[in-house]
């Protein structure tokens, strides 16, 4: 009971928030010049990263581990707080919905729950996500098999998008995107042909394919080979993450719409030493 009271404390939230800010600012300092160290987390996943990179450089990893712990406590704190309040509200749920202040409270708790869902989504992604980095697919009609999977990829057609602006002289004559018609097949799951480009991934039976880069970047490029490089991922946390994001935005909107307005004359200026 004592532990539950501790975890429902608003003071705990405040302390955790402030610790998170300090920790993230320290992380900002650690990131300086060490970007590639953290970049590897997106390729290896959290557990492997902690056991390899993390262990090899505890100083630069410490802020991230502390961040995980603080976020864990924040999630527990949020769940306990929201759980307790929502249990109370559930008894008079319809009445709560009728009142503006009730809708405001529900919005706040929606935000809280959304944040926990969001964190759970990230955690799932980083623990159970699978990544196949830098899978090159040429436009020669040759099929590429993604290592360790049955996924077979082939570029059927590729169109380069040139830079058409005038504002950046360095970009004149350059290609800024490539649209490739990608043929994907997976044993037992059929096949699919879909366009892929820099910010337009392709999804296929739980796999998602992201274009990392393409070649050549300009007509006079030294490397003439035509190809795209893909990151092939399987990420079970994404649906949760996007649900969390949507719910959070709805929660904030509700917070802004149903916010109780302060009225009366207490907003007039009163010297601080006169205030009781």
């Amino acid at each position: 009971m004592l532990l539950f009271r501790f975890f429902t404390s608003l003071h705990l939230s405040v302390v955790l928030f402030l610790l998170l800010v300090v920790d993230l600012l320290f992380g900002w300092y650690c990131l300086e010049g060490n970007t590639s160290f953290y970049q590897m987390m997106n390729r290896t996943g959290l557990v492997e990263w902690l056991l390899t990179f993390g262990r090899s450089d505890p100083f630069h990893t410490s802020w991230f581990v502390v961040l995980l712990v603080l976020l864990f406590f924040l999630a527990i704190n949020t769940l306990c707080c929201t759980g307790e309040k929502l249990t109370r509200l559930a008894k008079n749920f319809h009445a709560t919905l009728q009142r503006k202040s009730g809708r405001f409270t529900l919005s706040v708790h929606l935000m809280h729950l959304a944040m926990v869902v969001l964190l759970a989504g990230y955690l799932l992604s980083y623990i159970f996500g699978e990544v196949n980095s830098s899978v090159a697919v040429g436009d020669s009609g040759m099929t590429t098999v993604v290592p360790g999977t049955q996924l077979r990829l082939r570029v059927e057609k590729m169109e380069m998008i040139p830079y058409s602006g005038k504002g950046i002289p360095a970009f004149e004559g350059r290609r800024i995107d490539a649209e490739a018609l990608l043929h994907i097949s997976l044993k037992g799951y059929g096949e699919k042909v879909q366009k892929i480009s820099m910010n337009r991934p392709v999804f296929f039976h739980g796999w998602s394919l992201f274009m990392q880069t393409f070649n050549p970047k300009s007509e006079g490029s030294m490397s003439k080979n035509i190809y795209i490089v893909l990151d092939v991922r399987r990420d079970p946390g994404i649906p949760l993450t996007f649900c969390g994001m949507t719910a959070f935005v709805l929660g904030v909107l509700g917070y802004l719409c149903f916010r109780p307005r302060k009225t009366g004359t207490n907003e007039n200026s009163i010297p601080l030493h006169h205030k009781k």
């Binding site: 590639s36 090159a136 697919v137 040429g138 040759m142 099929t143 590429t144």
Partner: peptide, 26 residues
């Protein structure tokens, strides 16, 4: 440094090691 040769090399059964990195070597 050229990833485009990977599919063809795979076909030939020759392993490829990419020795360049996206971020400059410190």
């Amino acid at each position: 440094w050229d990833p485009s040769i990977v599919p063809m090399m795979t076909e030939l059964g020759i392993p490829v090691v990419i020795t360049s990195t996206p971020v400059a070597m410190c």
